[in-house]
């Protein structure tokens, strides 16, 4: 059985964000990491692999050459092989053309039984790529998963998902796409042995020519959303500071809220 985990290469949230003159992100010198939610998606796939070492886990990333560092970490944790989609023609992709590119790569990887994605990325934060891939592949989706069990014999996945106000247990037959939210467990760390092994694992680099897509379906050309400008959010007004005895502070705080008609 074959599982694909989509892994995005994102700038670390702790780093200040800078843009270049073409409105693309300044990546030089900025520490980049695995998108935090994708770490949980990978962990679910690796737990499945713990239970059945014959299961093949493939990571899929669309990104620059530098993303290889992050991809190697996924291989070191236990993924079997990795695919990096890298082509200047992919620059400027919007959420849909990104999904289209990833879906085409999943089709090329072939015979995939399940795809796992983080629910959202910490940079673009669109929350749409997973479900869009599912639609493009004409697969069902299971979203907001916190835990997931794979039944290879019966060919289905059952998940615990965080629905509005309730926890749901839902299942779907394979093939299926899962979007994963923060789980109750922490993603594993790479072991020294894993890091050594990662260097021998396959890291395929595919360009647009490797996918069944034309240039006008991806990148700047395929995008139907155009970013016009970036701006800094208006600065928050300087705050008031309160200190004193608890009773006094409490009275002033409630007065403040009352003046703003918040209470």
């Amino acid at each position: 059985m074959k599982i694909v985990v989509c892994v995005k290469y994102v700038p670390d949230t702790n780093e200040p964000k800078r843009l270049k003159s073409d409105l693309a992100l300044q990546r030089n010198g900025v520490q980049s990491v695995i998108n935090p939610m994708d770490e949980y998606a990978l962990e679910i796939a690796l737990k499945w692999k713990d239970a059945d070492p014959a299961l093949e886990v493939v990571t899929l990333t669309m990104g620059p050459e530098e993303a290889k560092g992050v991809i190697k970490k996924c291989l070191a944790k236990g993924a079997d092989r990795a695919v990096l989609l890298q082509d200047p023609a992919l620059g400027g992709s919007d959420a849909l053309s990104t999904s289209r590119t990833l879906a085409a790569a999943i089709a090329k990887i072939g015979k995939v039984d399940a795809v796992l994605c983080g629910i959202r990325s910490s940079d673009g934060d669109c929350n749409v790529v997973g479900p869009a891939i599912a639609e493009l592949l004409d697969w069902p989706q299971l979203t907001y998963c916190k835990e997931a069990q794979l039944d290879q014999a019966a060919r289905y996945v059952q998940v615990q998902r965080e629905a509005d106000g309730a926890l749901e247990i839902v299942r779907a037959a394979l093939p299926v796409l899962l979007t994963v939210t923060k789980c109750a467990f922490e993603p594993r760390l790479a072991t020294f042995k894993g890091i050594t092994a990662a260097n021998k694992k396959e890291l395929l680099v595919w360009s647009l020519a490797d996918l069944n897509l034309s240039a006008n379906q991806v990148g700047w050309e395929g995008a139907t959303v155009k970013v016009m400008s970036f701006s800094e959010p208006p600065p928050r007004p300087a705050g008031q500071v309160l200190s004193g005895s608890p009773a006094e502070v409490a009275r002033k705080m409630v007065e403040y809220l009352h003046t703003l008609k918040l209470v």
Partner: peptide, 8 residues
């Protein structure tokens, strides 16, 4: 950051 985008 804020970004402003249009559908083309």
């Amino acid at each position: 950051m804020l970004t402003t985008a249009v559908a083309t």
